[in-house]
Amino acid sequence: MNWSDPKWNIALLSLIFWIIPGNSWAVPITFNTALPVSQGEIIFREQIIIGKASDDVGGLDRKMTALTVNSVMAYGVTPDLAIFGILPLTFKKLKSPAGVRETDGIGDGRLVARYTLYKKNAVGKTTRIAPFIGLKVPTGDNQRTDGLGLLPPNLQPGTGSWDVFGGVIATYASVDWNLDFQASYRVNTRDGGTERGDVARADVSFQYRLLPRTLSRYDKGFFYGVMEANLVHSGKLQTGGIGDSNSGGTTLYLVPGIQYATRRWVAEAAVQIPVIQDLNGSALEKDFTVLAGFRVNF
């Protein structure tokens, strides 16, 4: 049994790492937006992510469940510069014929800075382009053990490595609908003898106002339908300089969701469904991921 199979780890972390907050606009659920955080304002976001994977093409009958609670704080330093801090709490469980292994704890935190490079406002609409850069800090433990010894990397709460990531977000927002696009890249560094593969990612999100259909000055909140797509490519895990042939690959997700945005808070829920999983070797394929959460503006 290949306990060190990094596929799940990479896929899960890919998801967690890139879920960073937006504003009380209708915004993407699985990635960030270029819409501004007002200067001096704080946004708090809480998100629960439940992932399940049981499609074991290797015939090892493995089943993995991961639950992550992301706590996010965003602050508008200037009208164009916003910083984000994200701290995840994770619970992971892997079932197999050999037994059950599980762990929980604080995961790796992230710090992100986003700067609005281009903006064009018009009546009832705005267009923005904002590059961002971030640092993943190894706040999570990566040396957990159980009765069978050291847990495999995909079950550890943290990765142990300092990783950098960056990208660009483009957003068009109007009163009726919003469109967001993100392209990003994460450089995963070495921790001891292990180095996870880099991750390249492209995301798109479309949010359409379903209710109210006609605007009035008395509207207190908008109900949106959301459709997103995430294309994620992960490189192979390197152990001692040798690539793991059962790691890395490409996955395309479709993410239908709903969102309710008021003057002060947003509630949202979505299901991330892998429609194409072109993974290397005998990686454990994902079944689905459920995301739910809220954001509050202070």
Partner: peptide, 14 residues
């Protein structure tokens, strides 16, 4: 006051 770039209830509220 005429504004550009407001697209949502939050924009008005803030």
């Amino acid at each position: 006051l005429k504004l550009e770039g407001i697209t949502c209830p939050f924009c008005v509220a803030t």
